[in-house]
């Protein structure tokens, strides 16, 4: 099992109290629970045949996506991999339209032409889930290059998994970002497995990635990706540094997906004990307990939040079910811009 540890306590450098206020903390829980329920529901809809193709669920990794994205502004670009539902929802993409995209409906974010692995919402600067492993990294460099070229405030956040680190463009992009000093935050979601291949089987050099990144002259942090507050603090510190230095930063989040690579995965490559031990760190379970222990919330409030979100997901399924399929004419649209 991959070793995990909490990041060193990073001093909160953001101003004001909003970082630690009750609403902000409850907001983190709401997003994690929304993602969890969305994903569970996707699995059910997949079994019923309403969602087809490949379905990669974010179950278990919620604290990573939510922790990082909670610290972004609307000026920042987000680009990610094909396990993208969690990032989409944490970025505030419409739940109904996200579900409709998975159903392949015309009301979907991409009019039903992208599916689970390719969620986009340019109005939120969410520049896609991308389904060629590591393919989004060079594009992320280009997004941040444009921000620097245009002297914009925003930065670019690029998510990728440990599987991406054995692609050449991973190394090339780290180098390019360092050579050109791009305002970009690399977020490695190290869940220990690239599909069914554990890091130990496919990587020489151990299960930690961040030490290698320093050879490119990029600042790094390692953080417990199951701890939403730790992820949030690490991200805040990273963004402050990116903005003040106009230079790249790399965060490695140690996390775990509780389910298979895709919905069809029987997980023959790992044993139940490993999954169980990570389940003990489930942020959707542990974080509300923490809030209650800190007297920031109550059982009742958590339960109310859950039932409200459950209803929201039910609504999203109904919206997707009731939406029309794209018309046949849609086949020939959006290939070129006139």
């Amino acid at each position: 099992m991959p070793r995990t540890r909490r990041s060193k306590k990073i001093k909160n450098t953001s101003s004001g109290n909003s970082f630690h206020d009750r609403d902000a903390l409850l907001g983190l829980f709401k997003q994690m629970y929304l993602i969890r329920q969305f994903e569970i529901t996707c699995g059910e809809q997949y079994s019923q045949g309403n969602i087809r193709g490949f379905l990669h669920l974010y179950i278990g990794q919620e604290a990573t996506g939510v922790g990082v994205l909670s610290q972004l502004s609307k000026d920042d670009y987000v680009i990610t991999h094909y396990r993208d539902h969690g990032h989409a929802l944490a970025r505030g993409l419409d739940v109904n339209r996200s579900m409709a995209e998975l159903f392949g409906k015309s009301t979907g974010l991409s009019k039903g032409k992208g599916g689970s692995m390719h969620l986009f919402d340019v109005s939120k600067k969410f520049m896609g889930g991308h389904a060629i492993v590591a393919g989004q990294l060079p594009v992320a460099a280009g997004l941040s290059l444009a921000q620097k070229y245009k002297n914009e405030e925003g930065i670019t956040v690029c998510f990728f998994g440990d599987g991406a680190t054995n692609q050449g463009v991973y190394h090339e992009t780290l180098n390019l970002a360092a050579v050109w000093q791009l305002p970009i935050l690399f977020v490695l979601e190290n869940n220990g497995y690239g599909m069914g291949s554990s890091i130990e089987r496919v990587r020489a050099g151990g299960t930690d990635f961040y030490p290698g990144v320093s050879t490119y002259g990029i600042d790094t942090a390692e953080v417990d990706g199951m701890d939403v507050l730790a992820v949030r603090e690490a991200t805040r510190a990273a963004i402050d540094k990116i903005r003040s230095n106009s230079s790249p930063y790399f965060i490695e989040c140690k996390t775990f997906r509780f389910v298979g690579h895709s919905y069809a995965d029987g997980q023959k490559y790992r044993d139940n004990d490993e999954i169980k031990s990570w389940r003990n760190k489930d942020p959707v379970e542990t974080f509300p307990k923490y809030l209650i222990n800190q007297n920031m919330s109550t059982d009742q409030e958590i339960s109310d939040i859950k039932s409200k979100i459950d209803k929201q997901i039910d609504q999203a399924v109904k919206f997707a079910e009731n939406s029309p399929n794209p018309p046949m004419s849609e086949l020939y649209k959006d290939i070129y811009r006139d």
Binding site: Y77, L176, V179
Partner: peptide, 19 residues
């Protein structure tokens, strides 16, 4: 750098960001 895949991809990113 001599990184064709990456600078082509960077061009794509810059293009979708308005350059």
């Amino acid at each position: 750098p001599i990184s064709e895949a990456t600078f082509i991809g960077a061009g794509i990113g810059a293009a979708i960001a308005g350059l």
